[in-house]
Design a binder for these strands. Sequence first.
DNA 1: CGTGCCTTTGACCATCCGGTCAAATCGCGC
DNA 2: GCGCGATTTGACCGGATGGTCAAAGGCACG
Lengths: 206, 206
Amino acid sequence: MAQDAGAAPRTRTQTRNRAAILEAGLEVFSEKGFRGATLEEIARRARLSKPNLLYYYPSKEAVHLALLENLLDAWLAPLVALDPAGDPVEEVLLYLRRKLALSRDYPRESRLFAGEILRGAPHLGPVLGGRLATLVADKAAVLRGWMDQGRLARLPPEHLIFSIWALTQHYADFDVQVRAVLGAGRDPYAEAGPFLETLFRRLLAP
Amino acid sequence: MAQDAGAAPRTRTQTRNRAAILEAGLEVFSEKGFRGATLEEIARRARLSKPNLLYYYPSKEAVHLALLENLLDAWLAPLVALDPAGDPVEEVLLYLRRKLALSRDYPRESRLFAGEILRGAPHLGPVLGGRLATLVADKAAVLRGWMDQGRLARLPPEHLIFSIWALTQHYADFDVQVRAVLGAGRDPYAEAGPFLETLFRRLLAP
DNA sequence: CGTGCCTTTGACCATCCGGTCAAATCGCGC
DNA sequence: GCGCGATTTGACCGGATGGTCAAAGGCACG
């Protein structure tokens, strides 16, 4: 039996197949959304039969949920890494760069996330008001401290964080639109990097 | 017969029912996405039977398409209104305010749009590389002209436009997340307005 | 080589859902 | 109040899809 999705895989086969399912699920869910994705297609991409997939994850939702949960840590890591002991402007810029790198290197994850939030966060709703809200409150306090010390321009810290999310994730989530507007032969991320760096340097200077 | 979705409605009944269908479709599509929406639910919200809905629009896609097309003009209007004869910084800020107002007053439209783009723009793909790209190229030229005259900070104009899209639409598309982070009792838009205004004033000053 | 568990699968089921159709009903112009 | 097109609907269809099940296959270990 391998039905318990939460348990650690025991055999090599389990490890390999679960990984293949998650990879395939990420591909399909991020492209088609939860409703648009089919178990058939996920199974095919994972080179498994549909019942075989259901042997590893008990339902479509279980795969989706596993992906979102796995994602969360990686997604929040850059914000967690914001160091209260560092230089204020440089720390925020570091966060910006890390977040933009996530959009560039993991656009599927970004879109999976965006789809979930866009639909009202039916699966990770509680996490938003819980872990996420706590983390943001924590880091907002750090930012506010820096502002109080005059080392960072005074701004509503939560909205400063939102602006970093919005500006970086836009390039992953709205990729088609960005590329359609820029035309072929241009590298969105290569241009976005310096632009966003300028934007935040001007915004954050005390 | 009323099958031609493109034709202007002739009777009062047509006008009323088509409007009801579009309103219901907007509600359901923006909340559940194209695949997640069902004709049954759209029909119910429009107080029509399913076959009756199909009498006015020949398919689910036709309703979706009609919504996107109706939307496009309203969505692009603020950018169209960017006046080459106006004051550079004030014109951009005006655009920002108009766009934020759209997010505040028409969040369902914003989410409908976001969903379409997120899934790779299967329906209005051609529009992106056509009308949208042309419009942006046009206004980017205006911005560049202002920059050349030293009346606006030198920045990649397309990315400047992207940043306005990203920052304003974020508040509509990721509404649940924003509210979860801010907590109840706070008005996201009331806080976002001044913040974004500050952000762009600092960014755009020559 | 045999036993027992892990893994895989073909066949199948129930449900949902977009769309059709023929018939009923409505309501406007005469 | 009649005729006729516009509108509405119950019943139905076919395909897609999430999920089940019992049986078969593979593999490690005695």
